[in-house]
Write a protein that binds this DNA or RNA. Sequence first.
DNA 1: TACCGGTAGACGGTATCACTAGGTACCGGT
DNA 2: ACCGGTACCTAGTGATACCGTCTACCGGTA
Lengths: 115, 115
Amino acid sequence: MGNQMTEMLKGTLEGIVLAILARRSAYGYEITAWLRDRGFSDIAEGTIYALLVRVEQRGFVDVEKVPSEKGPPRKVYSLNAKGRDQLAEFWRTWSVLVERIEQLHHNDNQHDEGA
Amino acid sequence: MGNQMTEMLKGTLEGIVLAILARRSAYGYEITAWLRDRGFSDIAEGTIYALLVRVEQRGFVDVEKVPSEKGPPRKVYSLNAKGRDQLAEFWRTWSVLVERIEQLHHNDNQHDEGA
DNA sequence: TACCGGTAGACGGTATCACTAGGTACCGGT
DNA sequence: ACCGGTACCTAGTGATACCGTCTACCGGTA
């Protein structure tokens, strides 16, 4: 699979995960499964854990340890106020970027074959 | 200023520049000016030169040195066949990402965020 | 003359981020 | 006793954009 997608995920993956946590609290393994399910099949498991550590250290999420019937206890992450702020900021930046790039796309394929 | 945008540009800036070169050949300084004009004011000048070196080494562009009345000679970049291929690939990856993220956004919008 | 600002390109070092490739630990079924 | 699924964690790597700075040329101004 393209490392093109890999590079594009930089800066957006964090927002994606925050958006997931905005819907409901979740733990790492659950998030990776959810992403795989939703078509983000190329995202490595370790990446999510590293990302969760980052967002925790930045104070965007609250953490609760919940015992699991299978395996080690789950670390359940919940988006807090600061995280919701960050998510809003993410959507704002994302919108700006999409708008600008779509404009480029329109100007571009006026005389081009759309693959 | 958002380093959020900075991180998001990773992986997309190359496509943006290729899209610009798809419209017409250009040199580095011209591209930075064009970007500033189009709202990408947060992109550092040096970044574009480094990016142009990369895409040249990957064979996506052809280069021609053209003397300038002011300052050193311009390096005029033109998108070639391989570059057009890469650009098409970029648009494909971009579309997939936008689709997936927009879906997330729709599922997410419990709290309204005016654009 | 001497200096400044605009044009044009280049470089070195830094930070962030996602990936690879493992490892630890717990549990139930064969 | 072993294997596979669940669940988490880490170290090292590569790509990318950033910052500050430098070279070089030109015309206008003090």
